[in-house]
């Protein structure tokens, strides 16, 4: 399969980029967050009906506030709530904000700790 690229994006640009993807006929496939011992980022995946797929990578920190793209892609609110509940990244102006009750885990923001953090 083809090489994959992850285009860097900042939280200021994400709304404009998302709007451009809508005009080009893309739809949102998923949003997810990754935290490793050295970095933390959110990946946005967009795909077109001809199966082409594009990824955006945004570096964030726990506690950061990122503008929500659920106004542009309605499906985004689920992924954003998930990211908020598991990683502690805040999203401003979500279409539906569960305020941290989407995943009711016993440990709040369970995924925001990596194995390395636990060992400390």
């Amino acid at each position: 399969m083809a090489e994959q690229t992850y285009n860097p994006v900042t939280s200021g640009e994400i709304i404009d980029r998302a709007k451009r993807y809508v005009q080009e006929g893309y739809r949102l496939t998923q949003i997810h967050c990754t935290k490793t011992s050295t970095e933390m980022f959110i990946i946005y995946t967009f795909e077109k009906l001809d199966l082409t797929c594009e990824n955006l990578k945004m570096h964030v920190q726990v506690g950061d506030t990122v503008p929500s793209i659920s106004g542009i892609f309605p499906a985004a609110f689920l992924y954003e709530n998930e990211t908020h509940d598991l990683y502690g990244v805040n999203f401003s102006d979500m279409a539906v904000d569960f305020k941290g009750t989407f995943y009711e885990t016993s440990v709040k923001q369970a995924f925001s700790m990596t194995g390395a953090d636990n060992n400390e």
């Binding site: 496939t29 997810h32 990754t34 935290k35 309605p74 609110f77 689920l78």
Partner: peptide
């Protein structure tokens, strides 16, 4: 989505299942 760091343990593995996409 998998992110590996060169050791035998992965940094992150993400599964986005179809049901999650179908809730909306």
């Amino acid at each position: 989505y998998a992110k590996a760091n060169g050791t035998k343990y992965l940094d992150r593995f993400r599964v986005r299942t179809p049901t999650f996409a179908n809730i909306a």
